[in-house]
Design a binder for these strands. Structure first.
Lengths: 217, 217
DNA sequence: TAGTGTTTTAAACGTTTGTTTTACGCTAAC
DNA sequence: GTTAGCGTAAAACAAACGTTTAAAACACTA
């Protein structure tokens, strides 16, 4: 049986957005790859922005459940803070791999979705995501903060986003980086290896000493 | 005296690209803000891609000189590796501030330029930059590698880019993040403070322990 | 079976895009 | 004083874009 129109649009949009970005992917290529009529996007999603948000939702909904379950069932009592942090990031990487599902491009798109949410041109995305998934972010930040060095809320906010930036950049560009690396060092790496290597780096960054705030000059 | 056409185009392009991205900034808005004729871009730069590359070059040329001078005049003998790494990243942040020049948007655009260079849609940028500024990257990677833990070339390649990702993300989104932070915690921070805080985090990530490569699962 | 609400279709709409063309003004060399 | 050559100007180009329209096809209930 042929998949429902909405789903086929989302599949095609996911693929094309991942390959060429939001702005450079037209509704015409999406609908033609999906084998549906051009007007279907505006009919089912209202607009291109609506489609982008729907694509984002399909990533976030299972991810929210997965992360919440992992964090809440985590035993944070009998472990050092370092171990807990390592567990948190291992969980995050496992959830990331779960998104990838033997299709790394899917994960790259997800990362680019988050990245775009911080740019002005896709401001609607940030509003949508913060409105829709605030509990997830709050839970994640709260859990991490409890196992990181003492610092002000503000300092933690920035450090949290520094770490997110490291993940987002790596995941967004894992394909290009992997290709460069393969050409340069002749070793083809898979996503599970790269993410495993990333964990101790994230933990070390999370545990980095806290400096008093001064102006650099 | 009125600035030359080429320069006025570059100024306007820099501003508009930084505010709305490459794809969403039209040559018409650039040329009209620059007060020049629409055809001037294609005449002087050949195409929009040529303009983007020229904008990139205006960032990279002074940056290359600055970083090379800093790295080569650095005393790496009488310091611990940790101190050297701190110095390297302090230098990088100072050069970043030098790009900003009391205009943070300029620095954000520069970061976004680097980020775009890793995406497929702006593949011409990566080719241009790697062809044009390979010596800078090589020098930077070589200097850093000497003061980081022992690891394979491949592992270093990835770690180098993880660190770059942290910087690029932070700089790209420093405006949005600063706005969120100001709204949330009521403390307006300037770029020099944020970059100063970033240094120990980068160093800690650079010095993170090296794990044997395994597949995460 | 008739009728109602939903989905799909083809076509057109009005903009906007990067690029090209052609003509015109200017300056410098011979 | 004429001729190149370079830079600018306005206009037009063809293509692509997101969105809307109105009619046709469908699915389902009464």
């Amino acid at each position: 049986m042929k998949k429902a129109t909405v789903e086929r649009i989302l599949d095609a949009a996911e693929f094309e957005f991942g390959a060429h970005g939001f702005v450079e992917t037209s509704l015409r290529t999406i609908t033609s790859k999906a084998g549906v009529n051009l007007a279907a996007v505006n009919y089912h999603f209202g607009s291109k922005k609506g489609l982008i948000q729907a694509v984002a939702d399909r990533f976030f909904e299972p991810l929210t459940l997965g992360i919440q379950k992992r964090l809440q069932s985590m035993d944070t009592k009998q472990q050092t803070k370092h171990q807990v942090l390592t567990n948190i990031y291992t969980d995050l990487m496992l959830e990331a791999l779960n998104i990838a599902q033997r299709n790394p491009a899917r994960l790259a798109l997800f990362a680019r979705l988050i990245n775009s949410a911080y740019t002005q041109s896709q401001g609607h995305l940030r509003k949508h995501l913060t409105y829709q998934y605030a509990p997830l972010f709050i839970l994640l930040m709260k859990t991490m903060r409890e196992h990181m060095p003492e610092m002000s809320h503000e300092q933690f906010f920035w450090r949290f986003h520094h770490l997110m930036g490291m993940m987002v950049f790596t995941l967004s560009n894992s394909e290009s980086l992997g290709a460069i690396c393969a050409a340069e060092y002749d070793t083809q790496r898979e996503l599970p290896e790269i993410l495993q290597q990333l964990i101790p780096i994230l933990v070390a960054a999370a545990e980095a000493p806290v400096l008093p705030i001064e102006k650099l000059a």
